[in-house]
Amino acid sequence: MSTRLSGRLTRLLNLVPYFTANPGISAAEAARDLGVTPKQIMDDLNQLWVCGLPGYGPGDLIDLSLSEDSIVVTFTAGIDRPLRLTSTEATALLVALRSLLEMPGVVDPSAAQGAIAKIEAAAGSAAADHDAPPAVSDDPVAATVRAAVHRGRALHLTYYSASRDTVSERDVDPIRVVLIDEHTYLQAWCRAAEGVRLFRFDRIDAAAELPEPARPPAAVDDEDSFELFEGDPTLPAARLRIDPGYSWLIDYYPLTEVQLQPDGSCTAVLRFASPEWMTRLVVGLGAGVTVLGPADLVAAVRARAAAALDAYDALAVDEPDPGRVTEL
């Protein structure tokens, strides 16, 4: 969820108790109190009109009597009451919080641990985990990145790129922290690449907050969707044939132009920055992956595979024959 949408959700959830505590207040007065425009207040209230409890019929939805001069909540649908968790709900929430603690950079560990303690205290022994894991200290790099995102500051990163097999220094304008497939990423505008990039937290070797605000392009900052891997057209592309038993590679590598073949195999394209890395990858995968191009990569893979076979042959010559008896 984007920062913009999550901010509106928080505001919507606070409107019902606010207007319940201030019956008859005008949209202009409410806008001044809440730091938004009167139009935004009216738009939010119209959104609340279709929110409520399951069933979503009369008596289930929030009801309002409103005009720009007077706003009154006539039915709150229970949002004015404190949330009370069942033991099952509390346990599920505790499990989720502990899972977040195991993923670097997603949350501030001290805040999550404080929330866990409060939930356990409120829910009682039914939701408490007597075998809870020990306290987790915050990773300094993750804390720096998360603080920069919160403060809206630019960052200088030392980053290991797995696809290029290199470590680089770059200045970035943070946009948000996202969680994808159990990995935490910083989504940011990379000034060197002049594009949006994802930086995996466990590959950020160092991070330093810069004394300047983050200024990602406005259109990028407002975009909620993005691709996890975006091919760099300037990099060379390897065309691969992948056997049916190796289809798991599609989930592990940023393959593009994937085409399924009648025999169950597929062809795909993988861009790479380091020919040595690409050669090692293909040779390590064995007979399940065949390089179709470019020609120089095909030659490099063949040469490396031949060298590996020669090394095995040399070991076989040096090893004694177990069936041969040595006479003394």
Rank of each mutant, 00 (worst) to 15 (best):
138 D>K: 10
155 L>C: 01
121 A>V: 07
92 A>V: 11
52 G>Q: 03
65 S>R: 12
107 V>N: 03
79 I>A: 01
126 A>Q: 09
85 L>Y: 13
107 V>Q: 05
89 E>H: 08
141 V>W: 01
109 P>T: 12
112 A>K: 07
102 E>G: 10
51 C>M: 15
157 L>I: 06
63 D>S: 07
110 S>M: 08
134 P>T: 09
44 D>Y: 03
104 P>V: 11
118 K>F: 06
118 K>D: 13
110 S>K: 14
132 A>I: 09
159 Y>I: 12
94 L>W: 03
163 S>Y: 03
92 A>L: 15
67 S>A: 02
86 T>Y: 07
78 G>K: 07
107 V>G: 00
43 D>S: 13
124 G>L: 08
57 G>Y: 10
84 R>I: 14
101 L>E: 05
61 L>W: 03
78 G>D: 04
166 T>M: 09
159 Y>N: 08
147 A>T: 12
123 A>G: 15
148 A>G: 00
46 N>Q: 15
138 D>Q: 12
153 R>H: 11
51 C>H: 13
42 M>R: 11
105 G>L: 02
83 L>P: 03
83 L>D: 02
118 K>N: 10
111 A>N: 14
128 A>H: 12
126 A>I: 00
81 R>P: 02
118 K>L: 15
78 G>M: 05
99 S>C: 01
45 L>G: 04
163 S>I: 03
